[in-house]
Design a protein around this nucleic acid. Structure first.
Lengths: 100, 100
DNA sequence: CCTATAATTCGTTAGTTTCCTAAATAACAA
DNA sequence: TTGTTATTTAGGAAACTAACGAATTATAGG
């Protein structure tokens, strides 16, 4: 879990995740959104990948980066658990009616 | 927001927050839970305080640390926004019926 | 004022992060 | 094979982090 928060701690990496919200994107296309050298971005990709926050998929010469929602959700759960009181530690999620 | 995630990235600091879930605690009492020198813990307290995740309150010679829920919630919201799709970016929170 | 207690700041060391340029690798096309 | 494009790896400089012991500040009580 430290790795995930560490990865989230850098604004460039959060922006990368934001760009990936709408779907996978290649390293090159992602790099166009930043004023940084490509190797620098590649380093950020590695941090995100090691944290499990993104997955990769090669398509010919390009490599697609994709958000890994399950790890994002694990980070959410970890953060949530830091907020709950101890006596609520093991409380299962309360279900609420669907609104749609 | 970087500061908050940076602060959350260290296991000792997450444990400190966990210890504070049930109420404020003095620096010394917190330090008893770790096998680290007090100056080291004091450094971690400073990181948490600079991130806004805790507040302090002096009582005589002791200093009480207390969770700052509102900043914890801001971190939650930031993480949540990284997960939502762009077209949901500005979606206001949907209200659900109270369960109690 | 003097002493004791609680906590922080200072100074140092070792290891890590971030960024760069240059070189290497992978896949494809001619 | 040769060249082109996409991306990563290598190597290095500057800045930052985490940890410690020693010294310092702040407060309370005699």
């Amino acid at each position: 879990m430290s790795d995930a928060f560490e990865a989230l701690a850098h604004p460039v990496r959060r922006q990368i995740l934001r760009l990936l919200r709408d779907g996978a994107m290649s390293a090159g296309h992602l790099a166009e959104h930043f004023d940084l050298a490509k190797p620098t971005l590649s380093g950020h990709f590695t941090v995100l990948k090691n944290a499990g926050l993104v997955t990769t998929e090669r398509h010919g010469t390009t490599i697609l980066y994709r958000l890994n929602m399950s790890v994002m959700e694990e980070a959410m759960a970890a953060l949530l658990s830091l907020m709950g009181k101890a006596e609520e530690k093991a409380t299962p999620w309360k279900s609420v009616p669907h609104s749609s």
